[in-house]
Computed example of a mutant assay.
Amino acid sequence: MATVLAFDVYGTLIDTHGVVTELEERLGKGGRAELAAEFSRRWRDKQLEYSFRRGLMGAYVPFDQCTRESLDFTDRALQTQLSDVDKDHLMAVYARLPAFPEAAAALQRLAATGMRCVAFSNGTHDAVSGLLGQAGLLARFESVISVDEVKRFKPDPAVYAHLRHRLDVAPGDTWLISSNPFDVIGARHAGLHAAWVRRSLDAPFDPWGVEPDLTVTDLDALAERLG
């Protein structure tokens, strides 16, 4: 049976900090533009926190609602006073974030080896398909698998089981590829293999005693190791 490579999307294939330039424009001049990087980081952190909290509460909503609610929170926390028009614009930008520059070629190399490549995300099927399509990556994948199909969020074990059942693949033949340590640990806990894409050398891994099977700096390095 062919090995499955299940790629996380946000932060692994798609650069979630690609919104910084738009934030700089929306935050304006007068000493506020320097908030853009901090705003982007806190928006992303809160987005994940909201998905975790909703998962624990059993109060699932689509991931884009978590994204909008975390945008509203970050605006309040940093007192940036974004208008509704600004927020709508930033949400639209989030739907067309750029891919990391090496992603397309690395995916092509991996697919050429006969491994099955799928996108596996907290985002809804339509949102992820649209995002990957505009980034030029959608055709690289056999399918897009969303947690929305089971109304849970990563790292709930149910979503990794759903991934395997959808593809009819054994845990030992399934690799999760992610830049998010929580996702890597979740996959390993569920019996899958996992590769951590450590895009920043400053990024720490959670000290839980659960390690990735493989750590790489980017998707080119992944293709070198697995290809």
Results as ranks from 00 to 15, higher is better:
D213P: 02
R44W: 05
L110I: 11
G28N: 10
A36H: 01
V184N: 03
V184A: 04
E22P: 00
P62A: 09
D168V: 09
F52K: 01
G209I: 10
R152P: 03
F120D: 03
F141A: 08
Y160L: 04
V147T: 07
L163H: 05
L219M: 10
W43R: 09
Q79D: 14
L138A: 14
C66G: 02
H89R: 14
P171L: 05
A195H: 01
R166Q: 10
G28K: 12
T67N: 05
V9Y: 02
R225K: 15
K154T: 07
E102G: 06
L192D: 00
P98W: 12
K87G: 04
D206N: 13
K46M: 15
G11C: 01
G30K: 08
P155Q: 05
Q47W: 04
R41W: 04
A99P: 13
P212S: 11
Q65H: 11
C66T: 04
G123V: 09
H165P: 00
H165M: 13
D45N: 11
W43Q: 02
Y10C: 04
V85P: 02
L131Q: 05
S51Q: 12
Q81M: 10
R152N: 06
L176K: 00
Q65L: 13
L137R: 04
L167F: 05
D206E: 15
N122S: 14
L27Q: 10
D45M: 10
L97A: 04
E211M: 12
F52S: 01
H193V: 00
D213N: 12
R53S: 13
D75R: 09
A6D: 08
L82I: 07
E38G: 15
S51H: 10
L222A: 06
G186N: 06
R188C: 11
A187N: 07
R68H: 08
T74P: 02
A190H: 06
A103P: 03
L110Y: 12
R188F: 12
V144L: 05
S40M: 07
A103W: 03
P98E: 09
